[in-house]
């Protein structure tokens, strides 16, 4: 395990975001420059800039309708940006299909869980491992050794990933029959199965009670440490955001209104105003 005990201090990088000192010289896992998208005449996201270090956990927060999920959809090219550049590991994502973005190393979960409910837990994870399977349709039909080898390796890998959340015993269950919390965890496992370098979590704590949220925070840190990946999360639960994120971006009306460490954000008057409204004087 490459668990990092001591993490280096945060330093600002040119895009205005904070990055761990150790990550500064490396290609950022994610770099966004002047990203913007219009829906018809409506500007949904405007001049969005950020960079994310290789093992960073960053939070994307903002009031409802601020454009947070739109940013996620832009990152996976489900929505094509009108302006700006997104770079994953230094590679431009323009014109790539969502499945190609996935192969570039971006995986995500969804605000409203979107598992393949009629498939088993194991099959869901194996869908994430889809691209690792190397056998042709002919080999599958004839059940040649390569079919069995690939299938058993991917079974093992899927179980190993499930054991990360202690879910290996549920492998045979229908995904739709899992309890809510387990479904959320399975979605994360399925995303991790695609071997990402950047994991996008869309409201991972939605519907969780405080003790489950604490567990989730630990899990997010464990994912970062054991898989050595960057995580960008959208979340309304401020305890989670403040507790787990290295850096935070605050979005309102499609624009970044603040960026910085949790401490900076919590005391930023612009952020407080966006969330609570201006105090009447």
């Amino acid at each position: 395990m490459n668990r990092k005990q001591e993490r280096s201090p945060l330093v600002p990088v040119p895009s205005g975001f904070l990055m761990r000192e150790e990550d500064v010289d490396k290609t950022p896992v994610l770099e966004i420059r002047h990203l913007g998208v219009d829906f018809g005449g409506l500007v949904a996201v405007e001049d969005f800039n950020m960079a994310l270090g290789r093992t960073e956990i960053a939070g994307l927060i903002g009031p409802n309708g601020a454009g947070k999920t739109t940013v996620f959809n832009l990152l996976t090219n489900e929505i094509e940006p009108t302006r700006g550049i997104i770079m994953i590991d230094g590679y431009d994502t323009r014109g790539r299909k969502p499945h190609e973005i996935c192969r570039m190393g971006v995986a995500r979960t969804f605000q409203n869980i979107r598992l393949f409910r009629n498939m088993t837990v194991l099959e869901n994870v194996k869908i994430g491992l889809h691209n690792e399977m190397k056998y042709s349709i002919g080999e599958a039909v004839l059940r040649l050794p390569r079919y069995w080898d690939n299938e058993s390796i991917s079974d093992m890998r899927a179980l190993e990933l499930l054991s990360f959340f202690n879910m290996q015993d549920m492998a045979g269950w229908k995904a739709g029959s899992l309890p809510y919390g387990a479904q959320r965890r399975l979605e994360i496992v399925r995303a991790l199965a695609t071997n990402p370098s950047l994991l996008l979590l869309d409201e991972p704590a939605a519907g969780m009670n405080p003790s489950e949220t604490v567990e989730l925070m630990n899990n997010i840190r464990r994912i970062r440490d054991e898989f050595s990946i960057a995580i960008l999360l959208i979340e309304h639960d401020m305890n989670l955001v403040m507790g787990v994120c290295d850096g935070i971006v605050v979005l309102n009306y499609g624009k970044i209104i603040a960026k910085g460490s949790p401490e900076d954000i919590m005391s930023d008057p612009v952020v407080i105003e966006a969330y609570l409204g201006k105090a009447d004087q």
């Binding site: 996976t76 489900e78 299909k97 969502p98 499945h99 973005i101 996935c102 192969r103 995986a107 995500r108 969804f110 979107r114 598992l115 393949f116 409910r117 009629n118 498939m119 099959e123 194996k126 869908i127 994430g128 889809h130 691209n131 399925r190 995303a191 199965a193 695609t194």
Partner: peptide, 17 residues
């Protein structure tokens, strides 16, 4: 399995690669 995944949720399937 890819076929079943696409038929259940096309978007989620393509985001799984």
């Amino acid at each position: 399995k890819a076929m079943r995944a696409v038929s259940e949720d096309t978007e989620a399937a393509q985001l799984m690669g």
